[in-house]
């Protein structure tokens, strides 16, 4: 039996997973070819790397304050996917990318991701683990470590993808004043506006999670993004039905989803 209080959550999980898998398999079988809208923030990464290469200055990359043990790990993983893509571009163009991890548990994954990207670019001998610089796992010391390096290293492109808190604006403003092109994304609702206002390009919420699939251009992965649209339609339909039923005095659906 499903644990008490989690029935509604489990039902929604099954619906979202089923819709995602159906969309994924339909795409894989060639029965559908969903188009994905343009995400300017992700398209701009190549421009940012190109700019840094031309200027001969480094690219700074961070994945926020997430680790592997917290609730925000999915954002960190999404950030690492973008790190892999950016690092591959940097390797191809010969630009220096410095990654500043916050949580030490991310470091082995980051080393692997960056190594993989250099291998893909055919420049495995140029991979330097020293470009992954650990600054300590405490919010503001870390943020000011990145800030200081942004100024001193004259960073040309600043990319921040992952869970961010109060340091988001510190990072975005320091990037602006060092003259860097800035691309930032987070699913932390209360920080999105800082990136929208202060960065050149911002990824809002789920765009961050879609980044890996978007950048891979793999139809199967893009198919699962298409599945998210079905889930959203289902959710909106449930909300509308709930509103109508509640207005009519029927609270069954409301009670089912209540915690």
């Amino acid at each position: 039996m499903i644990n008490e209080g989690l029935v509604a959550s489990f039902v929604m999980l099954i619906i979202v997973v089923a819709e995602g898998l159906i969309a994924l398999f339909l795409t894989r079988a060639g029965k559908a070819s969903p188009k994905i809208r343009n995400i300017p923030g992700l398209e701009a990464i190549e421009e940012a790397v190109g700019r840094a290469t031309e200027m001969g200055r480094p690219i700074a990359f961070t994945t926020g304050l997430g680790g592997i043990r917290d609730q925000y790990y999915y954002q960190t993983i999404a950030g690492l996917n973008i790190l892999g893509y950016t690092s591959e571009l940097a390797a191809k163009y010969g630009a220096k990318l410095i990654y500043y991890p916050y949580d030490p548990t991310i470091m082995p994954m980051a080393v692997d991701v960056m190594e993989q990207s250099y291998i893909r670019a055919g420049k495995s001998d140029e991979f330097n683990p020293e470009n992954i610089e650990y600054l300590g796992g405490d919010q503001f010391p870390w943020a000011f470590g990145v800030l200081g390096r942004t100024y001193r290293e004259k960073i040309a492109a600043s990319i921040h993808m992952g869970p961010f808190w109060a340091e988001s604006l510190i990072l975005a403003e320091s990037g602006f004043y060092s003259g860097a092109i800035q691309i930032a994304g987070t699913a932390n609702y209360h920080q999105i506006h800082f990136f929208v206002v202060a960065a050149d390009y911002a990824l809002i919420g789920e765009e961050l999670m879609a980044a890996g699939a978007y950048l891979s251009k793999d139809p199967t992965q893009i198919g699962s993004l298409w599945g998210a649209d079905f889930s959203k339609i289902t959710t909106v339909a449930l909300i509308l039905i709930g509103v109508i039923l509640t207005a009519a005095g029927v609270t069954a659906l409301n009670d089912f989803f209540a915690l």
């Binding site: 994924l24 892999g84 991701v113 190594e115 699913a187 609702y189 999670m209 879609a210 890996g212 992965q221």
Partner: peptide, 25 residues
């Protein structure tokens, strides 16, 4: 939107479709 996106990201990872976070291919 984030919750749905996160669930589908997890599905892609659990199925090994999206594996950018793993080691060299």
């Amino acid at each position: 939107g984030i919750a749905i996106g996160a669930i589908l990201l997890a599905i892609r990872q659990l199925m090994g479709i999206e594996r950018g976070y793993l080691g060299p291919e």
